[in-house]
Simulated scan of single mutants.
Amino acid sequence: MTPRVLTCDETLAEMARVLTVEAAALTRMAAEVGDAQLRAVEILEAMEGRVIVSGVGKSGHIGNKIAATLASTGTPAQFVHATEASHGDLGMVTPRDVCLVISNSGETSELADIVTYSRRFAIPLIAITRKAESTLATQADVVLLLPDAPEACGIGMAPTTSTTATLAMGDALAVALMKRRGFEREDFKVFHPGGKLGAQLILVDGLMHTGDALPLVAPDTPMSDALLTMTAKGFGLAGLVEGGRLTGIITDGDLRRNMGGLMARSAGEVATRGPKVIRRGEPSTV
């Protein structure tokens, strides 16, 4: 079969159609939020252990992301692959946990063992599925129904709309739990110490130097002494302090701009006044 080559306009139109179909499903989900979603949040908030997220195929990939989002926002969570659960990983699931099981059809055979295990040991089971009459839905304590919306792919079969809806439902649960627990920026940074995000969340306190480590001089300090202070402290600059307040700063640029007769001047004559400051307890990226 020879594939039909789409024109540029047709390609963009197809992409826009996919986004429109998926957005419509999310809008419908938002309108249908109700008692089931509230009950799911209450169960997750009250649990003493972790959210055990499980699924197979694309649902498994989405489940991994949901577990990661929950864990990073204050709700302990772990993804357990349904097939591995049947081969010993059920030992990771305890009566203190809550199972969040994902299946678009609700009839995924690989989920049978983890569902049965949750029922046997009275572990709360929350299902995310599109079929209210499915085996998974009838076994669950709470069912979070996905909209009966078409997949956005051209043949209507590849998981697209359904996986987007599942991911959005997971985000809704995680963010609602954040709000109910009062999870704030300061809590978030505890779980995100690395990378660019971690750098954005570091407080000034974690970077600043204090006390005798600081190169500080008074306005009437001769520049010969100010240079010795700058060299001894190793920061390549000096702070100008008057009455216990930072009122200026001397940098290498200030030294170059005042090279003529530098040694005959005082620190106050060379310093750049009114430096920008940031206070203890503020994010380092302010």
Rank of each mutant, 00 (worst) to 15 (best):
T7C: 08
C8Q: 15
D9R: 13
L12A: 10
E14T: 14
A16N: 11
G34K: 11
L38D: 13
R39C: 08
R39E: 15
E45F: 14
A46P: 04
M47C: 10
H61W: 03
K65T: 12
I66N: 02
T69C: 14
A71V: 04
A71K: 04
T73K: 12
G74L: 09
A77M: 05
A77C: 04
A85H: 01
H87T: 06
H87K: 03
M92Y: 04
V93Y: 04
R96W: 02
I123S: 00
L125S: 01
I128L: 15
V142W: 14
V142L: 14
A149S: 13
T161Q: 12
T163G: 12
T164S: 10
M169R: 03
M169Y: 05
A176I: 05
A176F: 04
M178G: 05
V190N: 05
P193N: 10
G194S: 13
G198E: 03
Q200F: 07
Q200D: 04
M208Y: 12
D212E: 15
A213M: 11
L216N: 00
A226P: 01
A226C: 12
K233G: 02
G234Q: 06
F235V: 02
V241M: 14
L246R: 00
G248D: 05
I249R: 09
I249H: 05
R256E: 07
G268T: 04
T272Y: 09
R273G: 06
K276S: 11
R279V: 08
R279M: 07
V286I: 11
